[in-house]
Amino acid sequence: MLELRLVQGSLLKKVVDAIRDLVNDASFDCSATGFSLQAMDSSHVALVALLLRSEGFDHYRCDRNISMGMNLNNMAKMLRCAGNDDIITFKGDDGSDTVSFMFESPTQDKISDFEMKLMDIDSERLGIPEAKYQAIVRMPSTEFARICKDLGSIGDTVVISVTKEGVKFSTRGDIGSANIVCRQNTDVDKPEQATTVEMNDPVSLTFALRYMNSFTKATPLSNQVTISLSSELPVVVEYKIAEMGYVRFYLAPKIEE
């Protein structure tokens, strides 16, 4: 028996919208720790890891570890039927081939029940080793989304370089080239507007912008994004989910042949 209740139901919508561009079907794992997911995109270039900790839910009951294969577009279709202020309760049963979503309006005058079919998914789990990163950039998530969108209209790949000057995003395409430098800036009215660049060693890596742009679908989840870089490692683009956990995207770099 599994029962999760989230008063801030819109959060679940945002989580599904954040990852469904990258992954079609995924296996959600439920344990005493929380509700989690790990999935690769179909070309095995990127990986998404989600964690919603049990303490973050208003009610969390998970009698035993359970994995549920779900189609994210179908999940989005169901969740779209919830009002933005609705309380969402997610229920599952051992051995059942369906799960259910219950949406309650804040005034309790409308209660909806949706049942969704589960899928059989052969998911391969990867071990993500702990790593010490050469550079960690924190910046407003909207700013990062803007940069990826702008560069994506010019080139296919972005070179992210971190030096003591700041972080530079560069691209090159048929029509020309672009460089955007963001300097550390902590002199801001609100902490979420800050950009910080923590650098142990200078680093420069190349990534496909198509994936970066897909990661920015998580922007509504968090005001800030954290980009962790090390040569020889996939970049980590992390959106923290307040009080609950995170969505982390890992993207393998491109190298010169």
Binding site: H44, V45, A46, L126, P129, T157, P234, I255, E257
Partner: peptide
């Protein structure tokens, strides 16, 4: 020409 690496080259299957 740039070569796109796969995520599985970095993270082992468990």
């Amino acid at each position: 020409k740039r070569l796109q690496l796969n995520i599985t080259e970095f993270f082992p299957s468990t």
